[in-house]
């Protein structure tokens, strides 16, 4: 299986302190992180807040200015699905405009083709083509998250970084969104790096899992193996806490 993402020996730092006149401290947030995401794979990323999950996702998306190590992508632009479905859609534009924007930025289709692609995808995510003219404010949280996911996949990236994509949603809606993510993975040949603190969600959807603590990956492997026979003390604590 070929990999869509390979990360080797990644160390990363944040700058802290006042922006003016030097005097900024360098704080290391990632320590010697190595992992890969294979084509069509869903890799879970768990860890408490402050463990470096967000830093790692930023590194993968190419948003970290200060790092050492290798980040090798097979796809040009990995996209992101955010936790909060309310700030991830531009309130000033229609759903159709929002979904067309990635295609406009990629510059691969003309206007008619873009509209056709938007209608097709809206059908696929279970909203229907007439939602193109609606505003985000007219949608429910679950519908917004569907549109956010659609906006991330419409330009056909190979890798999606999903940062707690269902944790702001109702439990019933969560299941629908997870199903949608799984369907889109098949149709669009996607891979996910799936960040969550909910081990049940990781168990349902992921094939492999990375466990992070204090900027390090302390354990990684197939979900069944890690969950059934955790080797690291921290993983055991997480599993015990999840029940």
């Amino acid at each position: 299986m070929e990999n869509v993402l390979e990360v080797r020996g990644l160390n990363a730092w944040y700058e802290e302190g006042p922006a003016l006149f030097g005097s900024r401290r360098r704080r290391q947030v990632l320590f010697d992180v190595s992992f890969s995401v294979g084509a069509g794979e869903i890799v879970g990323l768990v860890g408490e807040s402050g463990s470096g999950k967000t830093s790692l996702s930023r590194a993968v998306l190419g948003l970290l200015p200060d790092y050492e190590g290798e980040i090798v992508h097979r796809s040009a632009r990995p996209q992101m699905v955010f936790q909060d479905p309310y700030s991830s859609l531009n309130p000033a534009h229609s759903v159709g405009w929002i979904l067309e924007e990635p295609l406009r930025a990629a510059g691969i289709l003309d206007a008619a083709q873009r509209r056709a692609a938007v209608t097709e995808l809206l059908e696929k995510i279970g909203l229907g083509g007439d939602y193109a003219s609606r505003r985000p404010s007219q949608l429910s949280g679950g519908q917004r998250q569907r549109v956010s996911i659609a906006a991330a996949v419409i330009a056909k990236p190979r890798l999606i970084v999903a940062d707690e994509p269902v944790s702001a949603l109702d439990v019933t809606v969560q299941a629908q969104i997870l199903r949608l993510l799984a369907e889109l993975k098949e149709d669009y040949e996607l891979s996910y790096l799936f960040i969550s603190h909910d081990l049940n969600v990781i168990w349902q959807i992921c094939s492999r899992v990375l466990v992070m603590k204090e900027g390090r990956i302390v354990e990684q492997g197939p979900v069944e193996e890690v969950f059934d026979r955790p080797r690291h003390e921290y993983t055991r604590q997480l599993l015990a806490a999840a029940g």
């Binding site: 996209q79 992101m80 531009n90 990635p102 991330a152």
Partner: peptide, 11 residues
Amino acid sequence: NYVKSARLMGV
């Protein structure tokens, strides 16, 4: 987030 997304899309 919608501005971050736009940056990721290469807008």
